[in-house]
Computed example of a mutant assay.
Amino acid sequence: MAELRLVLAGGGTAGHVNPLLALAAELRRRHPGAELLALGTATGLEAELIPAAGIDLVEVPRVPLPRRPSMDVLRFPSRWRRAVAAAQGAITGGRPADAVVGFGGYVATPAYIAARRAGVPVVVHEQNARPGLANRLGARFASAVGVTFAGTKLPGATVVGLPLRSAISDLVSAREIDTAEARRASAATLGLDADRPVLLVTGGSLGAARVNSAVAGAAVEILGTGAQVVHLAGAGKDEDVRRTVAEVTAAAGVPADDYHVLGYLEQMQHGLACADLVVGRAGAGTVCELAALGIPAIYVPLPIGNGEQRLNAAGVVAAGGGTLVADAELTPDWVRQHVAPLLSERDRLRAMGERAAAVGVRDGAARLADLVEHAIESGRRS
């Protein structure tokens, strides 16, 4: 295949940016001379992460669709034209792109429209079980559509899984070589005992109030199993969790030394390498990373939105690799009754991890890159 020029479109959240970066790394491995450009906004995560990965970022104005009567309705047409023009300049500037690969979000829609006008093949990747508006539009005329989960309703979809970010794909490889050694190394980094069970609690970078209060409120029973806890409370929310843990353990006369509370863990792979069980949300990235690593989880879907988080976790839960609990049902009592006993059953946890791994996809970046290459070859032949 001749040297490639590709435009990657996606931003705003880690759910869009991380798969984009994972695909970019795979394409660079296959095609070292490829020219990669990314479209993104000036304020999303992509503004920092994409240039840090050595990829040029072309800014596209963020143009949300007005949902109620306001001045934004009058401003929308001109803003939309500017966004499409910015995308088209990146796609056709110099030598036209061989393909545009979109991951959803605000910048994907103008990228899809600009690519269609320029006659450039479009490849869509949808990370959630329930697709967003941008990808529903792009899939109508895309040359190829890759989805993370079977059952995602997009025309002509191929299940490729989620392209894993490099830190997680490296951990997958390390665990395949020697799971125990990967665990020991990360346990030493975090100051944990690798021979004792570890519960990892996370609500994402912003935290999750329900998860924080429910798990911290059951700290006595969790610690009573001999488990260690790494609780990632979210930015600015760690003090509240520490206070709750201190109060409940002091009242019971139980030492809290094994309950570790952090706002955020930048090198999340260390926490995952040690975890015997995870309690957290069911974003596509979380579900796919845990399944790829073979880690069982208690999934607590976000109670707002269109319900995609429950759908994201449905497959791994059906396989026996996790448990779903509604946000409103997650209380300290629920944690005492379900999570604490599970931590005492390491054979059961191992079995759940094996079932999760059986449905996990570890080569999503390679599968999506195959799809992109095929779409380019087909476009060149036509």
Rank of each mutant, 00 (worst) to 15 (best):
V325R: 00
A340N: 02
M268F: 15
E345F: 06
P296S: 11
A292N: 02
R362E: 01
G294I: 06
R336D: 02
G320Q: 06
G360S: 04
G321C: 12
A328S: 07
V287Y: 06
A292I: 07
G320Y: 11
S344C: 08
L277W: 01
D327G: 09
D327N: 12
G320M: 12
D276V: 06
R346G: 05
G322K: 01
G322W: 10
V325H: 13
C288A: 15
G283F: 09
S344Q: 15
R348N: 12
G307Y: 02
E329N: 14
E308C: 12
A318I: 03
G315A: 13
Q267C: 05
L277R: 07
D276N: 13
V335H: 06
D347T: 15
G353L: 11
A318N: 14
D333F: 02
G353E: 10
V325S: 07
P301S: 11
L277G: 06
A291F: 01
G360F: 03
R362Y: 02
A292K: 02
H338D: 11
L290H: 03
E354F: 05
L342D: 07
V325Q: 02
C288K: 04
V316T: 06
T323D: 10
R350E: 13
A292F: 02
L277A: 05
V278E: 01
L311R: 13
G285C: 03
R348H: 15
L277E: 05
Q269P: 01
Q337A: 15
P296G: 04
L311A: 14
A356P: 13
V359K: 12
V339N: 04
A275H: 01
L272W: 12
A291P: 04
P301L: 14
M352H: 10
M268H: 03
A318S: 13
A358W: 09
A273G: 11
A313K: 04
G305Y: 05
P301M: 10
W334Y: 14
L349Y: 08
T286Y: 08
V359N: 02
E354V: 11
L311V: 13
R310K: 13
V335C: 05
D363C: 12
P341T: 10
Q269K: 13
G294P: 08
G285R: 15
R310P: 08
Q267F: 00
A291T: 14
A340R: 10
P332E: 08
R362T: 01
E289D: 00
V300W: 03
R348T: 15
I298H: 09
L343C: 01
R281H: 04
E308Q: 14
E354I: 13
S344G: 08
V279E: 12
D276I: 07
A358R: 13
M352Q: 09
G320K: 11
A292R: 04
